[in-house]
Amino acid sequence: MTTATSTSTAARAAAIVSQYFSAPIASLEATATLLGTELAASGNLGPLSSQQLDALVEPHALATVSLPDVHIYGAGFIAAVGLLTDERNHLSWWQGDDPKRLLLAAQSVNKEHIDYSELEWFRVPMETGRGHVAGPYVDYLCSDEYTITIAAPVHIDGTFVGVAGLDLLIDSVERQLLPKLAELGDKVTLVNSVGRVVISTDPRHATGDAVRGGALAELERTACEGVALEIIAE
């Protein structure tokens, strides 16, 4: 059932969602370009160590996590396998309310040897050469929470060297975005590109559920410009 009301609600909801994600995505894309330039420059001076990489990434990561209006939980750069001289895999990643560099070896569950090259937020930007919104998914490598990761590939002279990324916790997205969607009055559900509920103003639609097979599956979806998420209005 699509009425004129639900169509205009969907369009307004989609605009709110686009607006919410626009600053983090713009910041991330700028970081990816800058990092590519800076990495190329330091690469000219010789092979790169993890410590040198961390020093390059840190100011960008800290600037991203302190963006106003949108609560960003973590940000940084994940190196492609073999980029660095001293470590095969390396996460140059800052996270938390008082952002600290993520140190996998210090975590209670050992994650040092998780192969991240197959994880969506790394694999898709690597394969397509374009930015990607992954999730919501349980991020068992970095945040340990239910997360959306936005990632953009970093290239040096056309060669893929890793991804710049940022994490938004669904907990924060719900707190920040749901009140704005609720103001529209109608029932509004935000889903990702595989049809998974991100948040919904209808408490019956649980975050994480798939819309397939349910009442929402048949309804029209409205794309949110600039971010691969869709609105279903009832």
């Binding site: 209670s108 569950v109 050992n110 994650k111 340990d144 929470e145 239910y146």
Partner: peptide, 21 residues
């Protein structure tokens, strides 16, 4: 771990990781 993370539950996945370790 990848399979259990498809539960979309962060709590359960964390618990599974502790057990897996």
């Amino acid at each position: 771990i990848e399979l259990v993370a498809l539960s979309q539950s962060a709590r359960l996945t964390r618990e599974q990781m502790r057990l897996q370790a």
